[in-house]
Amino acid sequence: MPWQLADPLTLGINVGWVALWLALVGFSAWWLHRQPNSEPEFVRKTVHIGTGNVILLAWWLQIPAGFAIAASLLFSAISLLSYYLPLLPGINSVGRSSFGTFFYAASIGLLVAWFWPLDLPQFAVLGILVMTWGDGLAALVGRRWGRHPYQLWGEKKSWEGSLTMALVSWLVGGLVLGTLGLGWAVTWGVALGVAIAATALEACSKLGIDNLTVPLGSAALGFWLWSWLPWAGG
């Protein structure tokens, strides 16, 4: 399998960097949660954005798939328990109807299991970062500056938030897909398709399932375009 590191010391150091980053994100969430007039949504989105960037470290440090999948399973289990026990105060509320945190952790493991063995980590990174930055910033912008609401299937959204989702997803997609060596027009064209699909998935999702549909849908569409369309160079 690709990316099996032979040196245990190097592997340990690299996993340590990932653990340190997650610890910093966790400390930030704890500190924000303890501040006077702390906004739970801001705390959740800080963790949402901070945690998602771990996929970049896993990519750059060449963390083996087994470690990433095991971590995903662990955090998925913790997130499920947190809906019934106060394990993640400020991120999940006991009895909360949305399972977004669980879907978030699960999506990372699923995408690593899919694309790490193919030696195409870019598509796992694409899916996670579209969710991390696109969805995260869309929620914050919509909450603070959303002045033009709309509603789909009982879910309230704003055009400002959806526009943020599309633009950020397009930018993230272009930067990540650019590492595949495609032409400029193809790179940003595929990224645009991914951004439109991700925005639609986010707008239509309920109960936090966008944390699963957005990353998997974005990665799958990007991979399909890269693999099958003649002009995409797959």
Score class of each variant (00 low, 15 high):
30 W>E: 14
204 C>Q: 03
120 L>G: 02
108 I>M: 11
143 R>Q: 01
231 W>G: 09
151 Q>P: 06
104 Y>D: 01
105 A>M: 14
177 L>T: 03
187 T>I: 02
17 W>M: 12
54 V>R: 14
28 S>W: 02
212 L>K: 07
112 V>P: 04
84 Y>T: 13
109 G>S: 08
202 E>V: 03
35 Q>N: 10
26 G>E: 05
123 F>T: 08
81 L>M: 13
161 G>I: 05
190 V>Q: 05
134 G>M: 06
116 W>C: 01
85 L>V: 15
119 D>M: 11
175 L>S: 06
149 P>G: 01
21 W>H: 12
173 G>V: 14
227 S>K: 13
224 W>E: 07
163 L>Y: 07
66 G>H: 10
2 P>F: 04
165 M>P: 05
56 L>F: 15
217 G>S: 10
63 I>C: 08
168 V>W: 00
167 L>T: 09
125 V>D: 06
186 V>S: 01
177 L>H: 05
219 A>K: 02
31 W>F: 14
22 L>H: 09
51 T>N: 15
69 I>K: 12
187 T>P: 01
27 F>S: 10
156 K>Y: 11
19 A>T: 12
65 A>Q: 07
220 A>V: 07
35 Q>S: 12
109 G>D: 11
10 T>W: 09
15 V>M: 14
202 E>N: 01
202 E>Q: 04
51 T>K: 12
227 S>E: 03
20 L>H: 04
153 W>S: 06
218 S>H: 04
115 F>E: 02
51 T>R: 13
130 V>T: 11
61 L>T: 10
205 S>W: 01
164 T>P: 00
76 S>C: 10
149 P>W: 02
156 K>T: 09
12 G>Q: 12
177 L>Q: 02
23 A>R: 14
157 K>V: 03
84 Y>V: 14
209 I>W: 09
129 L>N: 03
17 W>L: 15
82 S>N: 03
153 W>E: 01
180 L>C: 05
54 V>W: 06
201 L>Y: 06
142 G>T: 00
15 V>R: 13
221 L>Y: 05
67 F>H: 13
53 N>Q: 15
43 V>G: 12
56 L>A: 14
15 V>P: 07
199 T>P: 06
225 L>Y: 01
62 Q>H: 15
48 H>E: 06
79 S>A: 14
231 W>S: 11
15 V>K: 13
220 A>F: 08
70 A>G: 11
8 P>G: 14
116 W>H: 03
216 L>P: 02
67 F>K: 12
130 V>F: 08
177 L>R: 02
165 M>W: 02
137 L>N: 00
157 K>D: 00
67 F>Y: 15
148 H>C: 01
101 T>W: 00
173 G>Q: 08
85 L>A: 11
7 D>I: 08
154 G>H: 02
217 G>H: 08
5 L>N: 13
150 Y>P: 00
152 L>I: 11
121 P>C: 11
21 W>D: 03
81 L>G: 09
89 P>Q: 11
177 L>F: 04
194 V>M: 02
133 W>A: 07
163 L>H: 05
46 T>K: 07
115 F>L: 08
116 W>V: 09
187 T>M: 04
226 W>F: 15
